[in-house]
Design a binder for these strands. Structure first.
Lengths: 152, 152
DNA sequence: ATGCAGTTGCAAACGATTTGCGATAAATGC
DNA sequence: GCATTTATCGCAAATCGTTTGCAACTGCAT
């Protein structure tokens, strides 16, 4: 497991360079995000962080998420229900498969699909700046144990 | 081009079978949707319909969109800004490419991508129920001509 | 025509997110 | 360390898109 503290420190420098400050609440929220293995929304992050600092406010979470996003420290996704969910951005690009029964989110990536997207866009006279690909499905049978790679 | 009136009539039957009613406002909204070549949101639909019936209310638009959606008469999409946009569903499945500069929406479809999606889901032990694929991009500049250079 | 739902318009309620404001606390300089 | 500047915080109020309770209304089946 990579050092959370190191990442927080690195981010602290990044903030300073932008004329921003590393506050206790930002540190706390960063830590919560680094430890999350799911895709929590603002309220979820707030709840977890609030347990460590009962003075934290929800608006600070929202404001912090915005800062972290513009700093490139996290990614924001809005799935079907419309609420923003966050995940920290130190991982490779990937898309999401959402279990419509449990709400579980599985990450995956497909260079082939990316290539096709670029090709399609080019044919339409566009270059892709970003994209959103979400699969909504339900479990068929237990996934095979071998040969299945879900990059997380 | 299929007749709008015919589609409205067909839908009227469909509604009746579901124990629902074809009201003036639903007729009007359907007409507005059938004539739309873009992906208007509730307010946009309301504005256009309101011009023909100043007694119409925005909540009726929302309620109608919900009815139309569950009846399969329209599709609802929520792009990056989060607001629901609608298009009527008498066309083949397609995904969307959104021009991040103009907001224009281009439709496209790719059987190859669909196939890949199914394959990926299967590998993860899932079957796809629906998906969302949106490309956000900008128009590529037309190829430069010799000696002609537009500085930006 | 009559009557029972399904529908409507209106305003109030909603839930997620944002923002104005005075108070607080990080950086910076001394 | 200690003061100074100003980014940030907590809180409550404000937005915004969308939903809903309710009383009046209107399809439409009989």
């Amino acid at each position: 497991m990579k050092g959370i503290d190191q990442r927080v420190e690195a981010f602290e420098d990044q903030l300073r360079k932008a004329g921003l400050r590393m506050t206790q609440q930002r540190r706390l929220i960063l830590r919560v995000l680094a430890q999350a293995d799911d895709h929590p929304d603002a309220k979820g992050i707030f709840t977890r962080a609030f347990a460590h600092d009962p003075t934290l406010s929800l608006s600070t979470v929202y404001r912090t998420m915005k800062v972290l996003e513009t700093q490139g420290a996290i990614e924001r996704h809005a799935f079907e229900d419309g609420v923003s969910r966050y995940e920290h951005a130190d991982q490779a690009h990937h898309d999401h498969l959402i279990d419509i029964e449990t709400g579980a989110v599985v990450e995956f990536s497909s260079p082939e699909i990316e290539a096709l997207q670029a090709k399609i866009a080019a044919e339409l006279g566009y270059e892709i700046v970003r994209h959103r690909l979400e699969l909504y499905g339900r479990k068929t049978r237990p996934a095979r144990r071998k040969g299945v790679r879900k990059d997380a």
